[in-house]
Amino acid sequence: MALFFLQQIESSVDSAHIAVDSAQVAAGAAHGAEGGLFAHLLEHVHDSHELDTPFGAIPLPHLQFFGIDMSITKYVVFLWLSALVLVVSLIIVARRNSKAAVPKGFGNLIEIFVEFVRDEIVLPNMGPAGMKYISYILTTFFFILLMNLFGLFPYGASATGNVNVTAGLAVIAFIMIQISAIREQGMKHYLAHLTGGVHWIMWPIMIPLEVLGLFTKAFALCIRLFANMSGGHIVILSLLGLIFIFKSYIVAPASVAFVVGLNMLELFVAFLQAYVFTILTAIFMGLGMQSEEHESREHSH
């Protein structure tokens, strides 16, 4: 069952890549006629300094700190919107849940997710020591989920569909993986682990590989989330774009039907990718937290 879904998602990502390619080809080849159209459509998945609303575009401020462009762009707005909605709703839920003997309605739903994250993600992968990091894991799950879901609203955008946002999340995941590993197994074991446990002659080869391995995990997290979230949007845009390419209403029902189907898939993918990012982070943290305990047991033999 899960394999089937994963295959579906892989294929959706693949098709997204093809769509990107064809879109670029189309944009490059016919810069005059359809090029403008595709450029316009792809603007939806690009960052911009304007916020589209039903009442027209709102210009966003340009900011610069220490020579870095810190402009409040479209994705920053959706980042903050997600954060605000998340913080407000969850604090309300926490207040309500702590007053009631048994949570009801929305509070109950949130609690099911919290319990799921605790019992199915944190405890099996990180053990009881993982409870120290549960705030981080829970926030990762809910924040990514909400950012994913925001892309499904009209005029909304998935902040996670931008590689910089997912890179930021991956940087935090990278830091958390290292911090948890160092805290649980000590600096000495952490560094020893980087040598791969081989003879010192091999160290010049092993150490760069192990260090690279640390970064690939986070890099994979970043690219996986970004590609999955932007891929679906591009496929939807491409399918809707077909209507304008063929300049025919006959194509519209088929396109719209596919887009509705894809939106359903996107809804599922929004949950799935939040789960995948979270469980992979938990697994990576768990590996770092347990590997040395395992290794020291081997040493003691």
């Binding site: 960052d47 900011l63 870095i68 462009d69 810190m70 402009s71 762009t73 994705y75 920053v76 980042l79 903050w80 954060a83 998340l86 913080v87 969850l90 604090i91 839920v93 926490a94 207040r95 849940n97 702590s98 949130i110 609690e111 919290v114 605790r118 409870m131 549960i134 705030s135 981080y136 829970l138 926030t139 809910f142 924040f143 902040a159 931008n162 910089n164 946002v165 890179a167 930021g168 999340l169 940087v171 935090i172």
Partner: peptide
């Protein structure tokens, strides 16, 4: 876009701290 990366990190850290104190801890 380094600015967006930095904004993401700042936002995320604030969200973790706020939720950790006011939402996750009481809920757990």
């Amino acid at each position: 876009n380094p600015g967006l990366i930095i904004w993401t990190i700042i936002t995320f850290v604030i969200v973790v701290l706020v939720l950790g104190k006011f939402a996750w801890k009481p809920m757990i």
